[in-house]
Write a protein that binds this DNA or RNA. Sequence first.
DNA 1: TTAGCTGCAAAAGGTTTGCAAATTA
DNA 2: TAATTTGCAAACCTTTTGCAGCTAA
Lengths: 148, 148
Amino acid sequence: MVDDAIGQVIERLRARGRRITVARRALIEALIAEPGHVTAEELTATMHAQHPDVAESTIYRILDDLEQLGIVVHVHLGHGPAVYHLATGSHVHLVCDDCGGIIELPSAVVDSMAAQLRAAFHFESRFTHFSIGGLCQGCQLRSRSDDG
Amino acid sequence: MVDDAIGQVIERLRARGRRITVARRALIEALIAEPGHVTAEELTATMHAQHPDVAESTIYRILDDLEQLGIVVHVHLGHGPAVYHLATGSHVHLVCDDCGGIIELPSAVVDSMAAQLRAAFHFESRFTHFSIGGLCQGCQLRSRSDDG
DNA sequence: TTAGCTGCAAAAGGTTTGCAAATTA
DNA sequence: TAATTTGCAAACCTTTTGCAGCTAA
């Protein structure tokens, strides 16, 4: 069924006139195999196990292309490098400013907020591209005790 | 009253043991004079009109320091450089992914959302550090007509 | 006087680009 | 064959850092 998922993506690429190269196939495999959010650097490392001569610039180019085709999205969780994942299973991220911990939310959680912004500003919001920053429970407690 | 605002910030710096240098005073003036969101580069340009030999690295260092003191915040509106503004008047940004247009919201608009995240995840969210991406009305209409 | 700040220059980190060679269809 | 894709290396952009000299208190 992983193979199946790969086949489906490849189909979509062919349908849009892309050529299926070793690097593309390997990157799609890596994206499907990886569980969560991966940086370009991590993807490169994964792919280098099997294909050590794929250049990181190639990976950035393929990711760009996949993103334009709506197959992949990238997310900014914090100040570091962007992370990538398949566009299916897009979700919202709460990221703790102190410890960097991540809570993933189903997009539905922000629906009422999105509706509010749509009604008031005609703005169709996507909460998925940037994280929502803040403090997790642990860091709230810690900063309180630091104060005292 | 601008002078007054400057004086207040300088007081806070002194109270925390900072030295008041030409660069610091000029940067505070620039921040108070600038209307909205400014990048470090824009601040540098502004300051160079009066003080051409202040280094950009100095500006980054002072901004860091002011941020640690809670006087300044930086915000990521999109993929470009961070923008800075005084911590007073902190607000939420809706940024159009297509045209880059910005809508500023009073923080109160996200209060109910914040309450929801607090109740469900004990997460104290700050919607001010990253923008909320999406599509503004104009770009929604444009992309619809591009489809057809 | 002396700690804190600054300028300069260089480096770091993430991402993009130019170009000739390789590869896909 | 012809156009797309790639590897390599270099550039780019924003931000950080090391260090010696300057300056505010």
